[in-house]
Nucleic acid binder design. Structure first.
Length: 273
DNA sequence: GCGATCCTGGCC
DNA sequence: GGCCAGGATCGC
């Protein structure tokens, strides 16, 4: 569900509640823990303080005063919600609750359990495995570095390239389609058939697309809400995603849907070459 | 590189 | 009942 703009909006919506002292931690029996046990998580969190919330790609990083970091990935259907008081009817798929002494708290909800709850570093001291492999952030990467990273994946299609978290992390299916539309590039085109100039332009469009997504509060197709339960408005600004058979938002071409790696790609052949 | 896989739920 | 879904890893 959430891509970089949605994760960033969640981060911003929860930042006012830091520092947050965790008086109690509750974990469901089927919480999607990765490389940590419930006991290890409890030791790392209970009676400790979340000092700030950061983001890398689609990962939320809840920094503790101990220098340990609670790592949360929301997968397809994850939510991180703030509750000023304990909710009268907690969501059925609540897997982690971090509760303060006054009853307020952060709730992690994830029906499909494609998410990740972990720690960085891991309890054995090793770095969190997938966090380490992420490329530089979209707003910090130099164009020359971006192009060099693209060239390492010469035989990928541009669509697959954008979904690869080692190039520019945080892009998912929606924003990959949108950035390629804005850049005028066919999602089926191979990296090796794409010029440096076109890649430079693509990076600029990735930035514009993600920044707009953040400014509009993220894309709510169905589930997405920020930490306060607010939906995002970006859906009304998508040019091609979920518009099969219609014209693109700016009217420059008719949108078709194809499957790439078993996932839908929306694009306008008249605009994208 | 590609397909299968982990899950639940909504929609046709 | 079947298909599809905003993700990422794993094995071939």
């Amino acid at each position: 569900m959430p891509e970089l703009p949605e994760v960033e909006c969640i981060r911003r919506s929860l930042t006012p509640y830091c520092p947050f002292v965790i008086a109690e931690m509750r974990l469901s029996a089927v919480a999607p823990l990765v490389a940590v046990t419930a006991a290890e998580l409890r030791t790392a969190l209970a009676q400790h303080t979340i000092t700030r919330i950061a983001r890398r790609g689609k990962y939320l990083l809840l920094h503790l005063e101990t220098e340990s970091i609670l790592v949360i990935h929301l997968g397809m259907t994850g939510q991180l919600r703030w509750h000023a008081q304990p909710p009268s009817s907690p969501h059925r798929h609540t897997h982690l609750q971090l509760i303060a002494s006054n009853g307020s708290g952060l709730h992690y909800i994830d029906p499909r359990r494609f998410g990740v709850i972990s720690l960085h570093p891991l309890p054995d001291g090793r770095p969190h495995p997938t966090l380490e492999r992420l490329g530089p952030e979209y707003d910090a990467v130099a164009a020359t570095d971006f192009i060099a990273r693209c060239r390492r994946h010469a035989r990928l299609t541009l669509k697959s390239l954008l979904l690869h978290q080692g190039v520019v992390p945080g892009i998912g299916n929606i924003y990959a389609c949108e950035a390629l539309y804005r850049a005028g590039l066919d999602p089926r085109r191979l990296v090796q058939a794409t010029s440096d100039e076109a890649l430079r332009h693509l990076l600029a469009q990735i930035r514009a697309t993600l920044d707009l997504g953040i400014a509009k509060g993220g894309t709510t197709l169905r589930d997405y809400v920020d930490g306060h339960g607010h939906r995002g408005a970006m859906k009304d600004f998508l040019h091609v995603y979920d518009r099969e058979g219609q014209s693109s938002l700016d009217g420059r071409g008719r949108v078709i849907r194809i499957m790439q790696n078993a996932r839908s790609t929306f694009f306008a052949p008249a605009v994208q070459t």
